[in-house]
Simulated scan of single mutants.
Amino acid sequence: MKRTAFPRAFACAAGLFLALQGAAHAQSDWPNKMVRVVLPFAPGGSSDLVGRQVAQHLSTHYGQQFVAENRAGAGGNIGVDFVAKAAPDGYTLGIATSGPLANNKSLYNPMPFDPEKDLAPIALVGEIPLVIAVNPSVKASNLSEFVALSKSSTNALTVSNPGNGTIGHLATEYLRINTGAKLQPVPYKGDTPAMADAMSGTVNAVVAPVTSLIPNIQAHKLKALAVTSKTRFPGLPDVPTANEQGVKLEATVWSAMVGPAGLPQAIVASLNQEINKYTGSSEGKAKLTQLGMVPLAGTPAQLSELMAAEAAKWEKIVKSAKISAE
């Protein structure tokens, strides 16, 4: 018995060693074929264009094709769910926004995946803040005056947003709940109609990603009261943040690369390092800025913390305002 046990144990150990060695070699050889990069929104939007910029850069750096593939629907959930259920081998990745990575967790029931359990955070790419803008006829020159005006008005001030459950909707509810402002959110199907009705005076104000509103703010067809990022937006340097005006409100659309849970750490580290280099480079900054994005960087752990913190933050607003994306 003892004579046969040792060879069998040795054979098992050798087999395990060879398997681990093969896995390590596969990781060190990554990528040795095309990598699919899932973009969970329709072609042509800012999130799609950002994802394609990053995929193109990674193709150049790694010498393999990182092919962008759109899988839109359910507020980004369909595409990210595909990533979450893919094999964790580094050949299916996703570049998604804060919606499916954090906010949707409290908006959709059931949610097809758990962002914090089913995804491997890789790297932040950048963020697009919101802007709060009003029709020029509204008698408020800053956000504090707008809040005060709403409280003194007989009827609630109407505020358009790009859609039910979007960050523009959530930010309006956040402002209403935390300041006591008398506001009525009005959801539209996209940035353009929400902006158009604010310009026509059909609604008093609009809260939407800053990139879609800049031209009409610069043309004085809308009056910008505040941006909702930590610091001022470079494209509108004269517009103060909400926080600067004493109104606590931070709300941005941030983008990040993720993979399925269980993605090898060597692949995560490699991608994180390269994306951080890109978003910090003059080329990366220039290309992302052209798309209205403020480049960001950070570790996978920091992205994980952001996903959890944002999910918890917006869950409180969703529950308080009784919002549902269904």
Rank of each mutant, 00 (worst) to 15 (best):
residue 67 V to W: 05
residue 118 D to P: 07
residue 71 R to L: 05
residue 180 G to H: 10
residue 116 E to C: 07
residue 170 L to T: 03
residue 118 D to E: 12
residue 132 I to M: 13
residue 126 G to R: 02
residue 52 R to Q: 14
residue 169 H to R: 03
residue 177 I to G: 13
residue 186 V to W: 09
residue 239 V to R: 01
residue 268 V to P: 11
residue 107 L to R: 02
residue 160 S to N: 14
residue 244 E to R: 15
residue 36 R to I: 06
residue 157 L to Q: 07
residue 209 P to H: 05
residue 102 A to Y: 11
residue 33 K to N: 06
residue 194 A to M: 10
residue 204 N to S: 02
residue 121 P to Y: 00
residue 303 L to F: 06
residue 139 K to A: 06
residue 117 K to V: 06
residue 21 Q to W: 14
residue 263 L to F: 07
residue 206 V to K: 04
residue 322 K to E: 11
residue 206 V to I: 10
residue 317 I to F: 03
residue 166 T to G: 11
residue 134 V to L: 07
residue 97 T to Q: 15
residue 22 G to L: 13
residue 44 G to Y: 12
residue 179 T to A: 03
residue 291 L to G: 01
residue 274 E to D: 05
residue 199 M to Y: 00
residue 89 D to W: 08
residue 292 G to K: 01
residue 267 I to Y: 11
residue 233 F to H: 12
residue 326 E to D: 14
residue 303 L to P: 06
residue 163 G to I: 05
residue 78 I to K: 09
residue 3 R to S: 15
residue 135 N to T: 11
residue 267 I to W: 08
residue 90 G to L: 00
residue 283 E to D: 11
residue 17 F to S: 09
residue 62 Y to E: 09
residue 19 A to K: 03
residue 310 E to A: 08
residue 88 P to R: 00
residue 48 D to I: 09
residue 244 E to W: 14
residue 316 K to E: 09
residue 326 E to A: 07
residue 24 A to K: 11
residue 86 A to M: 00
residue 108 Y to C: 10
residue 212 S to L: 02
residue 131 V to F: 04
residue 135 N to H: 12
